[in-house]
Simulated assay, not measured.
Amino acid sequence: ALVATFAEVFEPESQDFYVQCLLQLLRASEQSRIPIVAYIDTTYTSDLVTLLKHCFDLPEAPQLHDAQLLSPWLEWGDRTPFFICARGGSLNPQDGILNSYQEMRERVGFVYLRTNDNFPARLEIPVWVYEAGLLDWLVDLVRCEVVIGRGYPYVLETADQIAVIRNEDRNLFLRLMQDWAAREKLNLRLSRKTVSKLQRRRVR
């Protein structure tokens, strides 16, 4: 996500870490004119629900989220108009994490895009992409990735598969760690089951 609402529950130092990383990313994207997009497959944000509530003086609907609201109206490949994110805080509406985004405070937008049979996905995109007339091109790229990935962007699926630590990698790491701890005379405690597995695999 480009809007790090998830970090609002963290202590200030951790919040600042996420904000600074995202600010670097957003600034680099705008300066280099390289589009970026955050793909959120399952989202419970309620930016549009909150907008409608304020515009039409509607009652609170805490169980309703944007993707749920939009789902009946979007066929596969359909997207919503582009919106600029002006979200308040999840804990305090006046104190959202976007307040820490400095000049990028109003430079992150979003659309919802139907990519499979579930609720629409949320795409968070820098505002400069929309201003440069590249929004449709970028959303088309996401549609292509989703087609290749059979409902989920292929590039993300591939990155996830590569990032997952396989059992062999995990066992090698634990064995190296155990050897290092023994060499440094550190009291590293592994379960007997793990030690047994590592010793058996070392023999092979």
Rank of each mutant, 00 (worst) to 15 (best):
A1T: 09
Q199F: 00
V164R: 15
E60D: 11
E157I: 06
G88L: 05
G89H: 05
F119E: 10
Q102Y: 09
I125L: 11
S14N: 07
S32W: 00
L91W: 03
Y39C: 07
Q63F: 02
V111K: 02
Y112H: 15
Q24V: 12
R143G: 03
A1W: 04
R114F: 05
P126A: 13
R114D: 02
L23R: 15
M104Y: 09
Q20P: 01
D16H: 14
F10T: 00
D47R: 11
C144E: 14
F110N: 04
I125H: 11
Y39H: 13
N167Q: 14
A132T: 08
R143N: 06
L138M: 14
D47N: 14
D160C: 08
Q161Y: 07
S29T: 07
R122N: 06
W128S: 08
Y154K: 15
V203A: 15
D57E: 12
Q102V: 02
L190H: 06
V155L: 14
L48T: 01
L91R: 13
V3D: 05
A159Q: 11
C21K: 12
L186I: 06
R27H: 12
L74A: 01
L156F: 08
L98P: 03
Q68A: 02
T42F: 05
K193F: 09
R143V: 04
R87C: 02
A181W: 09
Y39N: 07
L2C: 04
D16P: 05
W73G: 04
Y39L: 02
A7V: 10
Y44F: 09
R105F: 03
E75S: 15
V164L: 13
D66C: 09
W76D: 01
N167K: 15
T45N: 15
R105G: 03
Q15S: 09
L134T: 00
R33M: 09
R33D: 02
Y112I: 08
G88R: 08
L74R: 06
A121L: 11
D140I: 05
N187Y: 08
D117C: 01
D47I: 02
N171L: 12
G89D: 07
R107Y: 04
V111A: 03
L98I: 08
K53L: 04
K197Y: 08
F110A: 06
A67V: 02
S32V: 00
R87W: 03
L186Y: 09
K193N: 11
T5W: 02
A7N: 06
L51A: 14
R27L: 12
A121K: 10
F110K: 10
L23H: 10
Q15C: 12
Q94M: 09
I40Y: 00
R192D: 14
G89Q: 09
E8G: 04
R204M: 01
D66E: 06
V9L: 11
L174P: 01
S196N: 15
R189N: 07
Y101S: 07
R202C: 04
Y18F: 13
V195G: 09
R79K: 10
L123P: 07
V155D: 05
E145C: 08
P153F: 00
R105C: 06
Q102F: 04
I84K: 11
D16N: 13
R204N: 08
L70D: 04
G109M: 07
I97E: 04
T5R: 13
S46P: 00
P72F: 05
P81H: 10
A182V: 12
Q178W: 14
V164D: 04
R27F: 03
F17S: 03
W180V: 00
R175Q: 14
T50L: 05
